[in-house]
Amino acid sequence: MNRWIACWNIVLKDMKAYYLKPPNVSWGLLFPLAWAGMFLIRSGQGVHSLVSVLPGMIALSVLFGTSSMLAVAVTFEKKAKAFERLVLAPIPLWMLMLAKTSGAVVFGMFNALVPILLGLVFSGLSGVAWSLVAPAILLMALASTYLSLLLAVLATEVFEVQTLSNFVRFPMIFLCGLFFPVTALPELLQPFSYLLPITYGVDLLHHAMGGEQLLSVGVDFALLAVFCLLLFAVSLRSINRHWIG
């Protein structure tokens, strides 16, 4: 019980201090919109075709929503030594890191609502399997957050995390089937797609909203879950090793 007080307050504090700051909110909203606009113009079709790019927009929103502030919430605090206060608290490290990353997960999922609302307004989104969309977004947010966490642990400066993060995020836009199917990629690149968790998240969204599908729903879920666990475990190990010197 006491530990939950600690964890809950860590989440609240991060929300207040980082995630709900105006520049962050606007970045989270604008970025997916800009991408969607670009693709709609490029495809030459009207807003009614929005649903075809919706899975990609959702994935993008989640990806950028989760990773944009984690570098600050973790790396910045680490550098300013405020993170030591958390490590001194009588909470197990795994619980602490879960709390520390939940802000990013929630924020990423919240960002995904923007394209979904747009879709609802412009094309009604009938026939979407929402029971599949919700867990897919959650798992994608988790995977993307823990991937960012791993990068944050590997770097020591905020700008390093942001550079690393871009280095990983931008190729993912093309490799994970966000706006064109993985099968349309050169054969040489396709194996890389399968190494990235977002690929399976986008595939789930294609199952729910239409579009070319790679694997079955069960396999997608299983692989995404494994990615989440693995990324979190590796980050935790790294934190335990390097941050508790």
Partner: peptide, 18 residues
């Protein structure tokens, strides 16, 4: 935490200990 007030900082520290 630089962005929290004195009061908020103390409350947050207390929360960390449950």
């Amino acid at each position: 935490y630089p962005e929290l007030t004195g009061f908020e900082n103390l409350c947050f520290s207390g929360a960390l200990y449950g």
